[in-house]
């Protein structure tokens, strides 16, 4: 089975003598699976997301050792735009992921950056919205969307970059019950489309959809057996 994302002996600390937030992690994620990583706040979940999506070391500095591979390509040797077409990330705060007044503008932003042709962008917008069953929202104002809908639009704007791997960093933390359910349904839908999903969570209610569950504690990853501590 192919493994689109792998980490080998991965360690990270924000400063040279600082505590290792991530300590010698080895991880293989299989194509088409939903992997959940749970952990208490401060256990390094977000840092792990940053390492797996190239945000570390490309945007944030620190002491990084070990390797992350995206489809057998060393993530350090790829640049952010290259990574963005392979790995899509949705973050916790819906407000700082929506930049534009209209849903369509938002979805077009990524492919525009990649210099995709206009007609192609239109097609990608349609595809992403239809996958999320949100075609009717295309011309809506983003400020009128609920928190859950904003997260879905943030996801859709990442999907227009056509990544095969999706990372969700506590995307349901600020969302109400109904919004959470909608996001979970979509994640299952993404799996059916053959996407590989990594979801990071502290809320155990949100991970029932996962195929495999790991817990992050003291910088290391272990099989999750019901306890975060």
């Amino acid at each position: 089975m192919s493994q689109p994302i792998r980490a080998k002996n991965l360690s990270f600390s924000y400063s040279k003598d600082g505590k290792k937030i991530i300590d010698n992690i080895n991880l293989q994620v299989n194509k088409g699976e939903i992997l959940a990583v749970v952990g208490l706040s401060g256990s390094g979940k977000t840092t792990l997301c940053y390492c797996l999506s190239g945000i570390i070391p490309h945007l944030y500095n620190g002491e990084l050792s070990g390797e992350v591979y995206i489809n057998d390509q060393f993530i350090k040797e790829m640049n952010m735009p290259q990574i963005a077409t392979k790995v899509g990330v949705v973050f916790q705060n819906p407000e700082t992921q929506i930049f534009f007044p209209m849903v369509e503008n938002e979805l077009a932003f990524g492919p525009e950056n990649l210099c995709i042709k206009r007609e192609q962008i239109g097609k990608r917008i349609e595809e992403a919205l239809s996958l999320l069953d949100m075609e009717d929202k295309r011309y809506d104002k983003t400020e009128h969307l609920s928190g859950g809908q904003k997260q879905l639009i943030a996801l859709a704007s990442v999907l227009t970059l056509k990544p095969e791997i999706l990372i969700f960093d506590e995307v349901m933390a600020q969302i109400d019950q109904k919004g959470k359910q909608a996001i979970k349904d979509i994640i299952i839908q993404l799996k059916k489309e053959g996407k590989t999903v990594i979801m990071v969570e502290h809320n155990l209610d949100n991970i029932e959809i996962a195929d495999r569950k790991l817990v992050l504690k003291n910088g290391g990853l272990k099989k999750f057996e019901g306890s975060l501590q």
Partner: peptide, 26 residues
Amino acid sequence: HRAKELSTSLEARAFRAYPERTSYIK
């Protein structure tokens, strides 16, 4: 805090990939 989050999500969506970019609206 907000500036940091914003710039991270901009870059994660390939902002400034090239010196030029296309535009869906014309």
